[in-house]
Write a protein that binds this DNA or RNA. Structure first.
Length: 347
DNA sequence: TCTGGGGTCCTAGGACCC
DNA sequence: TCTGGGGTCCTAGGACCC
């Protein structure tokens, strides 16, 4: 429930501020346990991850035993209870962990998948929030099994192409997605709610908040070495309507000045809306992130001295270190003049 | 029914390119 | 200047997730 509602119900409740730093540290410690279990870890959020343990059976036993050990180890090393869902697909594992929460372990045996899935309420399907659930309820659909009884085309008309296809697949427990490692954040943002207020915030104060947000965001971008190209301004108004404005610059940057300039321009474009509707939230996010490990190729040329293979290994190491490359091709440049043709001979 | 903060993905229109 | 066919990128809004 909302904080306001909670306070009304419990006037003497003690309200403590969140401690993000503590949660981040705990998350890191938990993920260390995950990585010591398998290299195939896909983080989903600060407190969730997929672990592919399919290849571990011979050395670590069945998934159920691995899950039990995982729980014990996290409790032991970090002191936190965790819930584990075990299944053949990511989707089902997630549903299982949701059902088993808190501090539980639930294994969905391959032969009982639909039996487990179909009685559950549609809200447990991934991608079904209040709006989609409402649309389904409108046509009398309450459970996953009832979704499964609908044709894909019916679902597509009901909730749109992508969501409809996904719903159809998930309700039949079709989820071919693999566990992906190395998934990177696509945007970095920060926002601040201003609360409802009697008189509008003076522009100078809105600007000061904007400066603070941009500073926080660009700091994080620099720390992560992820410059970005698209600056997004997010606004929310007193009537709970929202608006976003964005601008894309030619070259990725994490310069506070450049991003602040873009943010200010977007804000001044939105000035009429703000004075009409009353601002209650302002946020800045930067997307189109590049930087270390962004898609693309890096080529490092170096003169050949000594043993060719040693020189190549050295070059590969440098590229790995400097750019965090995940896929490498090595080759040999023939000729002496860099302006010449450059046939690359893989390996 | 209305806290706050951090994200992702999809859709659709428009400008532009060959 | 228009038509057809095949694309990309940007912008804005919306739904959803933790």
């Amino acid at each position: 429930m909302s904080g306001g509602q909670a306070r009304r119900l419990c006037p003497r409740a003690i309200v403590v501020p969140p401690r993000m730093a503590a949660y981040t540290a705990a998350s890191r410690a938990v993920f260390e346990v995950f990585h010591s279990t398998t290299p195939l870890v896909e983080g989903l959020s600060i407190d969730e991850a997929f672990l592919d343990v399919g290849g571990l059976r011979r050395i670590a036993g069945p998934a159920e035993a691995i899950a039990a050990r995982l729980r014990a180890e996290v409790a032991d090393r970090v002191g936190l209870p965790i819930t584990v869902g075990v299944a053949r697909t990511k989707f089902l594992a997630k549903v299982a962990s949701r059902v088993a929460k808190p501090d539980g372990l639930l294994v969905v045996a391959p032969e009982r998948e639909l039996e487990f899935l179909h009685p559950l309420p549609v809200r447990l399907l991934w991608g079904v929030g209040p709006v989609t659930a409402g649309k389904l309820h409108d046509v009398g659909v309450q459970t996953v099994g009832e979704v499964a009884a609908l044709s894909e085309s019916t679902l597509v008309t009901l909730v749109g192409a992508a969501a409809g296809r996904q719903l159809h697949a998930l309700s039949h427990n079709r989820d071919p997605r693999r566990v992906r490692t190395g998934v990177r954040r696509r945007s970095i943002g920060s926002q601040r709610a201003l609360g409802r207020r009697a008189r509008p915030l003076p522009p100078a104060e809105v600007d000061a908040i904007l400066v603070g947000l941009v500073d926080r965001v660009t700091r994080r971008m620099r720390a992560a070495d992820r410059p970005g190209r698209t600056v997004m301004l997010r606004l929310r108004f007193a009537d709970f309507t929202r608006a976003t404005r964005s601008h894309t610059v030619a070259n990725a940057t994490y310069s506070t000045e450049l991003i602040l300039a873009a943010a200010r321009a977007l804000l001044s474009d939105a000035a009429p809306m703000i004075s009409q509707r009353g601002l209650t939230l302002v946020g800045i996010a930067v997307g189109n992130l590049g930087g270390r490990g962004a898609d693309g190729a890096v080529q490092l040329l170096l003169p050949l001295e000594g043993a060719p293979s040693a020189a190549l290994d050295g070059a590969m190491d440098r590229i790995k270190d400097r750019f965090g490359a995940t896929a490498l091709t090595r080759g040999v440049l023939l000729g002496r003049d860099p302006g010449w043709e450059m046939p690359m001979l893989p390996d």
